[in-house]
Write a protein that binds this DNA or RNA. Structure first.
Length: 154
DNA sequence: GCCAACGTTGGC
DNA sequence: GCCAACGTTGGC
């Protein structure tokens, strides 16, 4: 099993939106970065655990835990000319972009702020604490995931 | 809204 | 394949 962190902008689609979906499950579409795409297509498996992270908002940080319920499959929004993330260079027989489905497991009682994560001495590897890291899908090492999860649960 | 740090594009 | 220009991300 692997561990991940997905960034999202709560103004667009946040943890509460996920909580309100049927079965608290939704496809994670709109990722348009090749490195993140490779994770979605090749590495993320059913059962993997995912931290949800709110970015570009008042309180940035880790807000909850989800699990992957469907592994990588083509992101349909790339084929829709009306969609925000339409990609005219992609085709159905050779899709460029992928997504996974995730189900909310837990919303943490308190958000673990980015500042708090950066202040944790044990946490040195996760992309969040590295300068200029802008990946919206990033792997999290198992030991760091465990430490962060314990901290989130308070 | 600013701006640094990226990633992507496209001319050559 | 280089690299300047451009667009995007995301914390502040």
């Amino acid at each position: 099993m692997k561990y991940w962190l997905f960034k999202t902008e709560p103004d667009a689609f946040g943890i509460d939106d996920l909580a309100n979906m049927p079965n608290q499950t939704e496809h994670w579409d709109g990722i348009r970065n090749y490195q993140a795409r490779n994770f979605l297509r090749d590495d993320i498996a059913v059962g993997d655990l995912v931290f949800l992270y709110h970015s570009s908002c008042k309180q940035v940080g880790i807000v909850g835990l989800a699990e992957v319920t469907r592994a990588g499959y083509p992101d349909h929004t790339q084929f829709d000319p009306e969609a925000k993330y339409y990609d005219p260079k992609s085709s159905t027989d050779k899709p460029r972009w992928y997504m996974v489905d995730i189900r909310l497991k837990e919303k943490f009682p308190q958000l673990l702020s980015l500042q708090a994560v950066k202040a944790m001495e044990e946490i040195t590897d996760i992309g969040l604490v590295k300068k200029g890291h802008r990946l919206s899908i990033m792997p999290v090492a198992e030991h760091e995931f465990e430490i962060l999860l314990q901290r989130c649960k308070g």
